[in-house]
Design a protein around this nucleic acid. Sequence first.
RNA 1: GGGGCUGUGGUCGAGCGGUUUAAGAUUCCUGACUGUCGAUCAGGAGGUCGCGGGUUCAAAUCCCGUCAGCCCCGCCA
Length: 438
Amino acid sequence: MRFPMIKRILAIEVKEYIGKEVLLQGWVHRIRQLGQVSFIILRDRSGIVQTVAEEGVVAFPGLSNESIVIIRGKVSADARAPGGVEVRVRDIDILSQALDTPPIEINKKIDLLKTNLDTLLTFRAVCLRNPDILSIFKVQAELIRAFRQFLIQENFTEIHTPKIVATGTEGGAELFSVRYFEQNVYLAQSPQFYKQIMVGSGLERVFEVGHAYRAEDHNTTRHLNEYVSLDLEMGFIENEQDVIELQKKLIQFMFTEVSSNCAAELKLYKVKTPQFKDIPQLTLIEAKEILRSKCNKDLKEAPDLDPEGERLLCQYIKKNTGEGLVYITSYPISKRPFYTMPREDNPEVSRSFDLLYDGEEITTGGQRIHNYGQLIKKMKEAGLNEKDFDFYLQAFKYGMPPHGGLAIGTERITKQLLGLGNIREASLFPRDRTRVAP
RNA sequence: GGGGCUGUGGUCGAGCGGUUUAAGAUUCCUGACUGUCGAUCAGGAGGUCGCGGGUUCAAAUCCCGUCAGCCCCGCCA
């Protein structure tokens, strides 16, 4: 170590050290060489800062983009520098040299970077260095952090439930099968049963940030076979409206936090968080009627909206109310899992809901059945064997409060917020129909 | 699972039977420039046009197969 006396500072802190000697460590983001003066742009976790080498870069053989360096120099205020401050290079040490030119352009702005998604994913480790691409995951981390903070404030307890399970939530068709010593097990498609059990355990209010696995043969811009689910479940509710009310506050909090803590990242993607007053609610029947009468789309007897219907409906709602989100409620019970609570006044209609955000579903939730006998009956009707679900049914047999919950798709809300074209962009290392590496 | 489409230097792409020695942009290398900030200017490097077969006097271009990828639908977070 050549400069043991000086502590490292970050790029963002340079402006606080005008006139002082500093030590920076980071990546060579870009070199601009002009005759006898060279600009070396340094990148670290806090951002980028300009350094100036008066004698040119020839004094530092081996210096190239992406090499890891230690730069020592004096901070000077200069109106010509970006941000009005720069570091006058005294010395550079190369900690780790980049041996080759990166396959994609790391220092390019996102709107100038024309690289295809497939290439970006193939060179994922390299392309994540691009600050604009990396900022997607700063926003995502903030969404998750805010989700966690809000729920903790609301007295929820964070739980971690198994992803290796013996049975699925709905039966087994969309589950990945895994060899587990001498038996066959599955990857959990949802923490549904476990979070309900934990409501019954006495925690009342629980949440989980965890992976969910879907062995569905889909290949679209909004599906992953492994995704991060933001789940919550709460006891002692009146009905699904209590869950919706909580989620409205939750979503508002998440967006407010991202808006203030990720302002630069949102600006980069030219987006703003939705500034909703109140998220409107439509029953499925009302939604279909709007589509039929206002959007010239007749879904007839369809038990759900199709993707085009979701897009058109959101456009209509935005035009007429300014809201970017909309709840769809009262789905037919036949379209929902067996544990979904039916309405007392109409057992064909469920107390479940979806939340659409700019034309795409980001949440499904609802009230669940808490009556043991009713649950068994529904389970049998769904063709499931109650013996396989004894671990789950125990929670109900000995008394279960009325409860409900929901799940938010992390990659989906990230994609919708940033206006990304493909959900794979919102996953660090996406798992889709064919991609299992990197 | 069904349907549509695309594979051309590191990256992005034009060309879609014959003056094509495969355009252009960007990256990279060399040179010029003491204030760049998508630097600029000059020069240079980099491609058996995904792979295999076929049609033709002639194939990046047409046909078949194959592999890879993208998009839409069903389903869902």
